[in-house]
Amino acid sequence: MWMETSCSLAFETPVATPFLLMLRPRSGAQQWIAREQYVLTPSVPAVEFTDQFGNLCQRLVAPAGRFSIHTSADIEAADFTDTAYGAPFVEVQLLPDATLPFLLPSRYCESDRFSQIASSITAGFTPGYNQCAAIVDYIRGALQYVPGAGQDIISAAEVNQRSQAVCRDMAHLGIALCRALCIPARMVVGYLEALQPMDLHAWFEAYVGGRWYTFDPTQGSPCGGRVAIAYGRDAADVAIYTQFGDPVELVGMTVRVERLNAAPV
Rank of each mutant, 00 (worst) to 15 (best):
M1N: 09
W2I: 06
M3T: 15
S8P: 04
A10N: 08
T13Q: 02
P14N: 02
T17L: 00
L20R: 12
L21R: 11
M22P: 00
R24S: 14
R26Q: 14
S27E: 03
G28T: 09
A29Y: 13
A29N: 09
Q30F: 12
R35C: 09
T41D: 12
P45M: 02
A46L: 07
V47F: 12
V47Q: 13
V47W: 09
E48A: 15
E48V: 11
F49D: 05
D51E: 06
F53E: 00
N55M: 08
L56E: 08
Q58C: 15
R66W: 08
T71A: 11
E76F: 14
T81I: 08
A84I: 08
A87V: 06
F89E: 07
F89G: 04
E91M: 10
L94A: 15
T99Q: 09
L100V: 14
F102Q: 07
P105I: 04
S111Y: 05
D112Q: 13
S115F: 11
I117L: 13
A118I: 02
A118Y: 01
S119H: 14
S120Q: 15
A123W: 10
A123N: 12
G124P: 02
G124L: 02
F125L: 08
G128F: 01
Y129M: 01
N130R: 08
N130M: 04
N130G: 04
Q131L: 11
C132P: 05
A133P: 03
A134I: 03
R140V: 03
R140Y: 05
G141D: 11
Q144Y: 07
P147N: 05
A149V: 14
G150R: 15
G150A: 12
A156T: 01
R162Y: 06
R162V: 05
S163G: 12
Q164W: 05
A165M: 04
V166R: 00
V166K: 00
D169G: 06
H172S: 02
G174C: 05
A176R: 07
P184I: 07
A185N: 06
V188A: 06
V188W: 00
V189C: 05
H201L: 02
F204H: 03
E205D: 15
Y207L: 07
R211W: 07
W212I: 03
F215L: 15
D216S: 04
P217C: 03
T218S: 11
G224Q: 03
G224M: 02
G225K: 04
G225I: 02
V227F: 01
G232R: 00
G232V: 01
G232F: 00
D234E: 10
A235M: 13
A236T: 11
A236Q: 12
V238S: 00
V238E: 00
Q243T: 15
F244C: 00
D246L: 14
P247G: 00
P247M: 03
V251G: 03
G252N: 13
G252Q: 09
T254K: 13
T254S: 12
N261H: 10
A262T: 15
A262G: 11
P264S: 09
